[in-house]
Design a protein around this nucleic acid. Sequence first.
DNA 1: ACCGACACGTGAACC
DNA 2: TGGTTCACGTGTCGG
Lengths: 214, 214
Amino acid sequence: MQLENSELYRFLALNGVGHGSSYGFSSSSYDFQIMQSFSNSSISETSPQDRALAALKNHKEAERRRRERINSHFNRIRSLLPCNSKTDKASLLAKVVQRLRELKQQAVEITEMENLPSETDEIRVLSCDYSSDGTSIFKASLCCEDRSDLLPELIQILNSLHLKTLRAEMATLGGRIRNVLVVAADKDHGIESVRLLQNALKSLLERSDSKRSV
Amino acid sequence: MQLENSELYRFLALNGVGHGSSYGFSSSSYDFQIMQSFSNSSISETSPQDRALAALKNHKEAERRRRERINSHFNRIRSLLPCNSKTDKASLLAKVVQRLRELKQQAVEITEMENLPSETDEIRVLSCDYSSDGTSIFKASLCCEDRSDLLPELIQILNSLHLKTLRAEMATLGGRIRNVLVVAADKDHGIESVRLLQNALKSLLERSDSKRSV
DNA sequence: ACCGACACGTGAACC
DNA sequence: TGGTTCACGTGTCGG
């Protein structure tokens, strides 16, 4: 039970009006009871106390509506982020901050991610992490010397890691090749798939190096 | 001025201990004053009142830390979204919901956006809206019959609209071509640039049709 | 004077 | 049980 109208409590106490066993009453019926005790007093109908009381009631309800508005937004966010319905507000807002930072990061990544082959070998795997459910989507870029067995090996890597290829680009220039892949991992191994793919591409690139040096 | 410890207020009032002009005191010094009045009473040192009072003080401070934690997250979010520092919490959370929905939408768009030419002509312009400042980034896809003057016209369109090309893909297959562009608009005309580009590409495609029909 | 947004202290509920 | 989270009513400030 909430303690409310403490000012009025003290006023009533000072004027000898006890509230007795009203402690278990619901909020609304309790308000009504106070209103009655005031309007039954000897003061005129629209007394200052009445107006103050009405203002207090308005204020209380407005504040309740405000809380409901904010909490409904919290619940909407809960349904949009990977979390259950009982994650507390602070952690939820922390997730929001993290998510918005990732989003901001993509702006620079999309401008940096060159799709023409570069002179130096390189591997880039960056998590996009779009979806709110477990499945994570990420983007991989591989740049190395072109060779005929590259594509079959790449396909075999993706199959063995159970990665679904959503999108593939290839660009060749001067004997070099760049592949850009957008792949989706199943929800069970979303996080480690990134590392596994990174290692597989790394060994693929190292094999390419050893062949060239022979 | 905050009204606090209302239970204790009533207790003190019933026991004839007035708090007089303590109304303007700060929260902490006021707590101390109450503590003193209790420990000076005839009850033993670690009385139940003392423990309850200490618990209340702990509770009060814990709640204050919780509020600070939540509000600091709110402020971090404010710096991450296009809004000033005085947007209220409800509107801020509404913006967060909107932003996360856009983010979720990109997951399906990235899978739907095919980069091979299709049989039918089509134009797609979708806003990515990555950055928190005014500049908006969006993605355009154009698929039509291939022809030599397509690329120059495309470049001219982008120049006339002051769109900066961050990334361009081209794929041709069986005499048809698909172009996928990622472009950035300056902050002044971010929104209308989308429509302007859409219309320009549309007329470009219609010109292609009329040429073919001749 | 009113209305809306906020911070505060407090009771309750959940581990 | 203490610790932590939440909802609530209330005081306060600004438009």
